[in-house]
Amino acid sequence: MLAMNNISKVFRTDLVETHALRDFNLQVNEGEFVSVTGPSGSGKTTFLNIAGLLDDFSHGQYVLDGEDVSGLNDNERSRIRNEKIGFIFQSFNLIPDLNIRDNVEVPLRYRGLSANDRRQRIEKALSIVGLASRAKHLPAQLSGGQQQRVAIARALAGEPRLLLADEPTGNLDSMMARQIMELLESIHSNGTTIIMVTHDAELSRRATRNVHIMDGQVSEINLHEQMQANVAQA
C-alpha cells in the first residue's frame, strides 16, 4: 500500500538545518492498522505530512498504492489526497461556517461528483458515524466527540484506500476517545488501511502494528500476533 525508501526531510532556516526525517524507511501493507508513536519532536507529524502528501520531502522515494508520488506536482498530489486518502485531525478541522452536511461534502466537491452521487455518499457516511440526524447543525453545536465523528464521516465519504489519523482522540475525554477508537476499528475491519499517529500507549496497542519514531528514524517495529489474523481476514 505504502512504501517509503530512504526519505529525508530537511528544514532550513538561515542558520540551521534540521533533519526532521533521516533515511526514513517504512512499508505498510494493504489492510494494516498501523499506529505511529514517538516523543514530541521525533518527526511523527513530518512523517504524517509526507505520507498524506501534505508536504514535500528532500530525498528518497515514496510509492503510494503502486504509484511513485515522489515527483508529482501540486495538482496531481491534490488529486491523490482527494481520491485515495482520508484525513482525521486532532483538532477536527471542521469548517465552522458550514453545517455538518456541507462539511462532509467538501472533499466530494473537489472530486467533481454529481449532486446526486454526493448526496448518497454524505448520507451513507453520516449514518456510519451515527450523525445522520444532525446534518443541518453547525460544528459549534456539537460536542467534541461528535465533531470528530463528523470529521471521520468526511474522511469516509471519499471512500479512501488509506486513512490517516493524527492524534484523533487527543482533544477528547476517555469515553469519547473509546467511541472514536471503536469506529476506527470497524472501519479497519471493512478493509481500509489506517495509519494513526498517537502518543497514547493504550491506543497504539489496539493497532495491528506499532511504529516507533525516534530522531527522525524508525527505531523499532512491534508486530502483534493479531496482525496475521487481520491480514488473513482482509
Binding site: 498524506g52 501534505l54 501540486d74 495538482n75 491534490s78 488529486r79 489526497r81 482527494n82 481520491e83 484525513f87 485531525f89 478541522n93 469548517i95 465552522p96 467538501v106 472533499p107 473537489y110 472530486r111 468526511r154 471519499g158
Partner: peptide
C-alpha cells in the same frame, strides 16, 4: 488559514 489548509488536505487544488 487553517480552513484553507484543511481544504487543501482534503484535495482542493490551488486554483480551486
Amino acid at each position: 488559514t487553517r480552513q484553507i489548509g484543511t481544504r487543501r488536505a482534503l484535495g482542493a487544488r490551488r486554483y480551486q
